[in-house]
């Protein structure tokens, strides 16, 4: 598995996409810091971008990488290798290279602007950690979709729908639900609803870190109560981890039965 991981990683690190992705983050980091001239404000702006963009890029590159390497997978499968090793190796290679683009792309400008000696260092680290989790989650989801769909167009379609659903539609549905059942105590529902969507969960994690939850009223207080302590924080990361583990488990399962 490590060999496959190594080669996919090298292959990806030199590909145009990783470079563009890295260049995008580094430019974004510098531009935001230059315009805001304030690290904590930049972290908030960044959050909004990371939470929507990281899943989108991870999903698209995941789907593209799988379909592009289909014949290569066939070649590898004809060698004495375990099936799961090939897929998990590729999955990790892609997730890690995307995460490195993110970590270096944002890390470099923020380091230069002195994030280490600022008060928001932990907020920034949470942001990077959450972004990394989102990479691992959405590459895994994309691999699930790609493995279940031979047809590339369908695969791309489902992947974009999945992203659209989790990033946009889900919030809309939740909000509609909250508005319709306005008269009932919905704090728990809101909490549950947000926790089940990795994008929402990531957003809340960062917002609470940034201490602007006061803007969210009573529900915000409930959230603060839940996530504010280390137990809630731990649970939130545990849920993100479950979002990684379940799809990866399914990758292994599908890979065992699939024909190439």
């Amino acid at each position: 598995m490590l060999k496959i991981l190594k080669y996919s990683f090298y292959d990806l690190v030199r590909s145009r996409w990783s470079l563009i992705y890295f260049a995008f983050y580094i430019t974004l980091g510098f531009v935001l810091l230059f315009l805001n001239n304030d690290i904590s404000k930049s972290v908030i702006t960044l959050m909004n971008i990371i939470i929507v963009l990281t899943p989108l890029i991870a999903t698209l590159l995941g789907i593209m990488y799988y379909y592009n390497s289909r014949e290569f997978i066939e070649l590898l499968l004809a060698h004495p290798m375990k099936r799961s090793a090939i897929f998990i190796g590729q999955y990790l290679g892609l997730s890690i290279s995307l995460s490195i683009s993110l970590i270096l792309g944002l890390g470099i400008p923020f380091l230069i602007y002195g994030v280490l000696i600022s008060t928001v260092i932990f907020d920034f680290l949470t942001l990077i950690l959450v972004g990394t989790f989102l990479n691992f989650i959405f590459v895994a989801l994309a691999y699930n979709i790609a493995l279940s769909n031979e047809n590339k167009i369908k695969g791309f379609g489902y992947a974009i729908l999945l992203w659209l659903f989790l990033a946009v539609i889900y919030d809309g549905l939740l909000l509609t639900l909250l508005v319709v059942f306005d008269d009932y105590p919905l704090e728990k529902t809101a909490l549950m609803g947000s926790v089940l969507n990795p994008i929402d969960l990531s957003r809340i994690l960062i917002l609470l870190k940034l201490d602007i939850s006061a803007l969210m009223g009573y529900t915000g207080a409930i959230f603060k109560n839940f996530f504010g302590n280390s137990m809630g924080m731990l649970m939130a990361f545990a849920i993100l981890l479950v979002w990684v583990v379940l799809p990866v488990g399914r990758i292994v399962q599908i890979a065992k039965r699939k024909d190439f």
């Binding site: 080669y7 390497s69 014949e71 290569f72």
Partner: peptide, 10 residues
């Protein structure tokens, strides 16, 4: 294999 397709960046 019938179709020789390899990772393009290697």
């Amino acid at each position: 294999p019938q179709i020789a397709q390899f990772p393009n960046n290697l």
